[in-house]
Write a protein that binds this DNA or RNA. Sequence first.
DNA 1: GAAGTTTATAAGGTTGTCCTAATAATATAG
DNA 2: CTATATTATTAGGACAACCTTATAAACTTC
Lengths: 230, 230
Amino acid sequence: MKNEAFSESIEMYLKTVSELADSEDLVPISALAERLGVSTVSATEMVHRLKKQDLLEHLPYKGVSLTVHGGRRACRVIRRHRLWERFLVDYLGLPWEKVHDYACRLEHATDTAVTEALAIFLDNPRTCPHGNPIPSPDGEMPDISDIPLIQMQPGDRGIISRIHPESILLLDYLAGRDIRPDQPVEFEEIAPFNGPLMVKIGEQTHALGQEIAAHIFVNCEDEVRNDEIA
Amino acid sequence: MKNEAFSESIEMYLKTVSELADSEDLVPISALAERLGVSTVSATEMVHRLKKQDLLEHLPYKGVSLTVHGGRRACRVIRRHRLWERFLVDYLGLPWEKVHDYACRLEHATDTAVTEALAIFLDNPRTCPHGNPIPSPDGEMPDISDIPLIQMQPGDRGIISRIHPESILLLDYLAGRDIRPDQPVEFEEIAPFNGPLMVKIGEQTHALGQEIAAHIFVNCEDEVRNDEIA
DNA sequence: GAAGTTTATAAGGTTGTCCTAATAATATAG
DNA sequence: CTATATTATTAGGACAACCTTATAAACTTC
């Protein structure tokens, strides 16, 4: 079983499918293309190549999902990414909202030996600075049970657990408003006609667009969860 | 003046020219090609591209040299490389002889902001673990005045200053014999007919081939240097 | 200065990743 | 069920970086 030897492009595709997959099972190729900043034609082309390598499956007109094999590869990339983020924030003192992009480059240039030595140096952190869990060395993603802010009900309270999926624009926006993991949240109300969500975070009440609210995950206070009815 | 935006290939070419240049002013394209593991045709092609970008000059049938511009770019890559090496050895505890290869990958994936934060974290080290000086942030290479072991005279003593240029095979060989910077050396004799050099390093006497001896640099003990007559 | 080596260039190809534009197939909504 | 959307495919290219083979030019040495 040969290791390494995956191009940066392939790693980006696998990582992105994995990131987009945990909201929905099947990731539309268009979503993939958009997040990667390539045309749908290019994305389709690459999907075919990855399918041939048994890294993902494709249900035409529905979307793609990772195979077990592909999922493990993706998790290894994500592990490297999140470990680097921890290092960049905790040891190099770089800004929370910038390190995602820096780590996006480092993640493709890191040998397994370096990754694991880094993990030990960092004392095996559980999450990245944005709250996302760090997969195990063999490519297993820890289970989590938080919910996106947008699924909260008026009156619900909780603690921000993570920002996901990340992007520089989103993180910049949130950093400017001091919206980060570990902050307490209280969902106040949602404006009608698909309007913004009014949410109290820390001391401040924010009007958050629905898109943004889908990227903020929360550990709700002890209460019956009703995912379906939401 | 735009920064970044240099392909990994271009960075490798510039770095390699810089590494090979300090032995001789002009680097033959064949030497460049060999060290990069590409054909001379490919190297020639790339040299033309780099010439067009004013990164290096080419005297046909003689060799190439970096322009001021190209030299600065090369030094920035080398700076990143050597800082990473220090981190990998000093903080991650990775083996001296392996980190060169790990850093070769990281050096192309490191933003300036990360590089400078890393330099501060490492407390601005003067050299890499193999003894080579770390260029300044703006791309200036410190002056050094050591000589290759092969230029020593029988009876000369000194301290190993650095291994240069580095390669995994060379470093593995030297690591196996505990030949590293800061070790004392005493040149005993050179075998006739271009034979090996007999050199006492630490407590042990080694028979070193001339190729290897050209890669080991030494700070000689206070005495008149006679580069020419050598 | 001719012979042989080194270096350079020219011609033609491959691979990976990307593109646009046009068309075809399917899904979804009125 | 038809119209509109989305999704997929086909065709034709572009580009960077590599390759081999073959030829030409320049250097070096005797």
